[in-house]
């Protein structure tokens, strides 16, 4: 059975993601970051915690993780997990995995921060992760920062809050969502199902 590792690099609710991945037929395992990553058929970087703390706890496995991803193992980063795909963050010091060039910046403006709740996707590049997801679909967000990729072609969805920001990226086997698919009702389940299909082939 396809084995998906959920990398546990902080404190938080990973159970929801595990349950959601199992619902779409994946065998999900919550593992510490120093696990034998080569055994994974796919990896998810969940979205709990703070960039600096996460960067610290991922540091010892950074090169292994990057190697595995460059070998083609599908990875899904959620929220902070997506932000960790990039180089730096305004949240604090520390380095991300630098799978993509770019930094994470704070949402600005006079709207309430964190941006928490249901907001809609503007799909700018159709992608297999979004198969069956319609433009304007609502998904659940909880965040104060978002990634700004240097390479704009990896952006597949944007969302408008105080400004228009990147809400999903996709490039080959690397997928990331700023929202939480595991908390986004049927739309989220569809996205995870698509990820499961990508993983299983």
């Amino acid at each position: 059975m396809t084995q998906v590792f959920i990398l546990d690099y902080g404190v938080g609710n990973l159970l929801s993601l595990k349950v959601a991945l199992e619902k779409v037929g994946l065998n999900a395992k919550i593992t510490p970051p120093d696990t034998q990553l080569k055994k994974a058929d796919a990896i998810t970087l969940p979205g709990v915690g703070n960039f600096t703390a996460a960067s610290k706890s991922l540091a010892p496995v950074k090169s292994d993780l990057v190697n595995v991803v460059q070998d083609g193992v599908p990875i899904l980063g959620i929220c902070l997990g997506l932000q960790l795909f990039f180089q730096t963050s305004e949240e604090g010091p520390g380095e991300g995995l630098a799978l993509f060039k770019g930094k994470n910046i704070r949402l600005k403006g006079n709207l309430k921060i964190p941006h928490m709740g249901w907001n809609s996707l503007r799909i700018v590049k159709q992608n297999e992760l979004f198969d069956g997801v319609s433009d304007g679909a609502y998904v659940y967000f909880v965040h104060s920062l978002y990634p700004e990729p240097e390479d704009k072609t990896i952006i597949c969805a944007q969302t408008e809050y105080s400004n228009l920001f990147t809400s999903a990226v996709a490039d080959k086997n690397i997928f990331g969502t700023q929202f939480h698919p595991e908390k986004s009702g049927d739309v989220g389940l569809q996205i995870l199902q698509n990820f499961a299909r990508i993983v299983s082939r």
């Binding site: 941006h115 907001n119 809050y161």
Partner: peptide, 8 residues
């Protein structure tokens, strides 16, 4: 679109 109002 701004944030949707939530019904809880």
């Amino acid at each position: 679109m701004p944030l949707a109002k939530r019904i809880i």
